[in-house]
């Protein structure tokens, strides 16, 4: 399912990160980075909530607007009952839709907002996506201070929140089209190899998009996947070639960009709902505004993993949503 948009623009964005992203290669592009994991709060969950409210406030400050000027807030995160977003929404007091697609949440939010703006149901919308490394580890994996060895294919959840302000005012980056992904399951049960879980979802969404829009892959200056990681990126490229006969040249993965690739602490790269928007809203948008990139395709990939279902020996389904971004001026 592909939507075309004529009047939707991402006017501005804000990005706030934790300490590991600060040490990464893109640190200078983020609006703000913290040195610790608590940001003055008592728990990691509350810290993530603070990241979201702070990133929205920072965004509104950049736009010289108040919370009352915003029609809608769409947001999601990784935690159970998307608590970080729900609690942030209760502080912000903007009409709110909470969404969950694991690490594809950011683009799902952008698509929903774009549809409503295009149909003039709303004038503007703030989309947020966030993740917190320690809060996610605690919920999905082992205690944070537990040091059991992990395989090389494991990914490292990013800590951060990214917000985007969308409206029909012709300013910033144009949202040109979007493709909604289908949930795919290729029988991968390894919760430490999310790249392998998500690669077919990303590939099928990309293929659907190219088919619907009758475009070639090189129509885009850059095709970005969300968080496939070092090994998932290779699987994705090979899969695109063998399954669809499409070879990708102008392709990268945000998981491999947010941390240095030789950073052993990050294993195969970053992950989490914040990974793709943190890189896109800062580094990629900066390049687009400078004119180095004109057409960018962002495919946010989400592994719909639940520890309960993994323990029941079921394979992990995944989804990928895609959005096409353009510079118009």
């Amino acid at each position: 399912m592909t939507f075309k948009y004529e009047n939707v623009y991402i006017n501005d964005t804000s990005t706030i990160t934790g300490p590991y992203e600060r040490k990464g290669p893109l640190s200078t592009y983020f609006d703000k980075s913290y040195d610790d994991f608590y940001f003055g709060m008592k728990t990691w969950e509350q810290a993530e909530e603070k990241l979201i409210t702070e990133s929205v406030d920072l965004l509104l400050y950049k736009l010289a607007r108040t919370r009352f000027d915003v029609d809608l807030h769409i947001g999601g995160d990784l935690l159970n009952q998307i608590v970080a977003s729900n609690y942030a929404a209760s502080t912000l007091g903007i009409p709110f839709f909470g969404i969950y697609s694991a690490c594809a949440t950011s683009v799902e939010g952008l698509i929903l907002a774009s549809n409503m703006i295009e149909s003039k149901q709303i004038k503007n919308c703030i989309c947020t996506a966030s993740s917190h490394n320690n809060a996610a580890e605690k919920q999905f994996r082992y205690p944070v201070e537990y040091g059991g060895p992990k395989p090389k294919t494991d990914t490292f959840t990013t800590t951060g929140a990214a917000s985007a302000y969308l409206s029909y005012n012709k300013r910033g980056i144009k949202v040109e089209s979007a493709t909604v992904g289908t949930v795919t399951d290729y029988g991968i049960k390894d919760a430490f190899h999310m790249g392998a879980v998500m690669a077919p979802a990303a590939a099928s969404t990309l293929y659907d998009h190219l088919k619907d829009t009758k475009r070639e892959a090189d129509y885009y200056d850059l095709i970005l996947t969300g968080d496939l990681g070092i090994y998932g990126r290779k699987i994705f490229k090979d899969y695109m070639k063998t399954e669809y006969g499409i070879s990708l040249k102008n392709y990268d993965d945000t998981a491999c960009m947010i941390f240095a690739e030789d950073n052993k602490e990050a294993y195969a790269g970053g992950s989490g709902p914040a990974c793709a928007p943190l890189v896109t809203y800062s580094y990629i948008f900066d390049k687009m505004k400078k004119g180095e990139l004109n057409r960018v395709l962002l495919i946010a990939t989400g592994a719909l993993m639940s520890p309960t279902m993994v323990n029941q020996k079921l394979s992990i389904p995944s989804i990928a949503h895609l959005i096409s971004l353009e510079v118009t001026e």
């Binding site: 090389k152 294919t153 190899h193 090994y231 290779k234 090979d238 899969y239 063998t242």
Partner: peptide, 16 residues
């Protein structure tokens, strides 16, 4: 692509 075939592809790129 079939699941078995895909799992072979994954194996090819999974580091030992």
């Amino acid at each position: 692509m079939e699941k078995n075939k895909y799992q072979n592809l994954v194996k090819k790129y999974t580091p030992k």
